[in-house]
């Protein structure tokens, strides 16, 4: 090999005692192991299937929804029929179509919020733990401050100032969720950075960003994924809650939360269950499904078992 700084010297090679031979495992052994552990958790598999179905429904909404969700297509508050499988709402829009389109809102809020705050929280946590000292002190006091805020009240105030739409909800939810991720990541980085292979990396001359993101981050990713999964479920719940209170996604755009708003009236609650049972059931199903996936991932990633 001409490119080598060393010339391969056969003479000296014979003096080197070869190690015992290897039976190499395949590269994806880790993922395979993770998969088999995950499969063992039946509820998690069911949760994953439901989550995938929900994602498909959201993506294919324009094709599978029988009607335009914002258009008045029937009489007011009509019970389920062949034409409107889940009936119509108090304005005469098709409930099934609204339910399908609302899946988009919930999943977007869930995934985008989590993607945002997990990225921010992870970055802040890694930097804080790795550099330590006064920077760590400062960042941790700021996270403490955020965690001490009465979350719901601030959200209500912010939304009433900035106006309520999906973007605002995502930003506000992300703003108040990053501290928990930052603390989680900080904790695991603090323990990882003490390990020999990180010192070895520094001793071998690797740059700090490389050590942070190529060596430390992959080792901390397990708990982050688990936290993110539960975060999706909780963001969906928060959006539903805010929309229910009228502080979230505004009609005519459909969201499971604002569909439930109708159930605030007693007549709807007792006489028109098709208006509130489906969105309620969807919220329950989605949150349960995603939480089960989280449980499964946590068990699969926990190497102590």
């Amino acid at each position: 090999m001409a490119l080598s700084p060393y010339e391969l010297d056969e003479g000296s090679m014979s003096a080197v005692i070869p190690a015992e031979s290897v039976k190499p495992e395949t590269e994806d052994a880790f993922l395979k192991q993770l998969f088999t552990r995950f499969i063992r958790h039946k509820l998690a598999v069911a949760g994953l299937v439901i989550t995938v179905l929900l994602i498909l429904v959201a993506l294919l909404a324009p094709w599978i929804a029988p009607n335009d969700p914002k258009e008045v297509t029937g009489v007011f508050s009509a019970p389920p029929s062949a034409e409107h499988w889940l009936g119509t709402d108090q304005v005469g829009r098709d409930v099934l179509s609204r339910l399908i389109y609302a899946t988009q809102i919930s999943l977007i809020v869930g995934f985008v919020t989590v993607a945002l705050y997990v990225t921010v929280g992870t970055l802040i946590g890694i930097v804080s733990a790795y550099f330590g000292g006064w920077l760590d002190m400062l960042i941790m006091r700021i996270t403490d401050m955020f965690m001490a805020f009465p979350f719901l009240m601030v959200i209500l105030v912010v939304i009433s100032i900035l106006g309520s739409n999906m973007t605002t909800i995502i930003l506000v939810l992300a703003l108040f969720s990053w501290p928990s991720v930052a603390r989680l990541v900080r904790g695991s980085v603090l323990s990882i950075k003490q390990l020999d292979y990180i010192n070895a990396g520094v001793a071998l001359g690797l740059s700090t960003p490389r050590i942070l993101f190529r060596h430390i981050f992959p080792n901390a990713v397990g708990p982050i994924i688990v936290n993110a999964t539960f975060g999706i479920a909780s963001a969906i719940m928060s959006e539903a809650g805010l929309s229910f209170l009228g502080m979230g996604v505004q009609p005519p755009t459909a969201s499971w939360g604002n569909m439930l708003t109708d159930a605030q009236s007693l007549t709807v609650l007792t006489d028109q269950p098709w208006l509130w049972v489906p969105p309620g059931a969807m919220i329950l199903l989605t949150v349960l499904a995603i939480n089960f996936v989280g449980d499964g991932l946590r068990d699969a990633l926990d190497t102590r078992q």
Partner: peptide
């Protein structure tokens, strides 16, 4: 050089193996 002749296979393995 360090006495691990099956270098090609080793390249794709993880340390725990």
């Amino acid at each position: 050089k360090v006495g691990l002749p099956h270098g090609k296979n080793l390249m794709n393995t993880y340390p725990h193996t």
